[in-house]
Amino acid sequence: MRFLKLILFSILTFGTLIFLTSLLFPSTAVVERTGVIHAPIDTVYAHVNDLKAWVQWNPWARPDTTATLEYSDPAYGAGAYYTWKGKQSTGKVTILDSEPDKGVHYLMDIEGLKPVHGGIELKHTADGKATAIFWHMEIKLGLLPWWKLRGFVADRIYGPTMDQALNQLSAICENRH
């Protein structure tokens, strides 16, 4: 009985220590990527503002091959959204605001995960011949230790996919220009 009490006390102490230590970790994870697309800003904006165009360049817009996608009408601009239901995940992306020559901000809700607030910001390059793009995602992690630990690897989880998406977007926009 004494051994059982010692084990329970150890587990409780260890759990409390992990929780208190996790309070020192940031409660928000941010992943950012930048790039330059050699195409006019209106060409790039057309692809980031239209959710139906996301399927061409954004891997998260087609979460799995079994997913069914449904779009709002219209599928572009502030308030536009799409939903998906598949074997692997269910979710919704909503454009919160959209401005030509500036970009879009969106909210991505995936069932079972924390909401992701994102933005794809656009600017003219100094020479005016290309578009500078800044894509950022912010995830509020909350207080639970396992979510905060996930924040430490957020860049490794989401960063390569963002790089791939920006490269694909760049190729599409540059070929249309």
Rank of each mutant, 00 (worst) to 15 (best):
I18M: 08
A61T: 06
K52W: 15
R33G: 07
V36F: 09
V36E: 14
L17Q: 00
L141T: 04
G159E: 08
T125Q: 07
K85I: 08
P40T: 11
W57F: 15
N49S: 15
Q88K: 10
H124C: 04
I157G: 00
A154W: 10
I120K: 00
H136K: 13
A75H: 04
P74G: 13
S22L: 06
T83W: 14
I110S: 00
D50V: 06
W135G: 03
V31E: 02
K87W: 10
V116Y: 05
L141K: 00
T16W: 11
F134N: 02
M108P: 00
E70F: 11
K140C: 05
L149P: 04
D97P: 03
P160C: 08
T34F: 13
L122G: 02
W135P: 02
F19Y: 15
L69I: 14
G151A: 04
T131S: 03
H124N: 13
L113I: 01
K85V: 09
L107E: 12
L23N: 06
D101N: 13
V153I: 14
G119K: 11
W84T: 02
D127L: 12
S72N: 02
T21A: 15
T65D: 15
L23F: 10
T65Y: 13
G86S: 08
A154C: 10
I120E: 05
F134W: 05
H136C: 02
Y71A: 06
G151D: 04
V93W: 08
E70R: 08
G118D: 07
A61M: 12
A39R: 01
D127R: 03
R156V: 01
R33P: 07
I18P: 02
S27Y: 09
G91R: 01
A154F: 12
N49T: 09
I95Q: 04
F25G: 00
V36N: 05
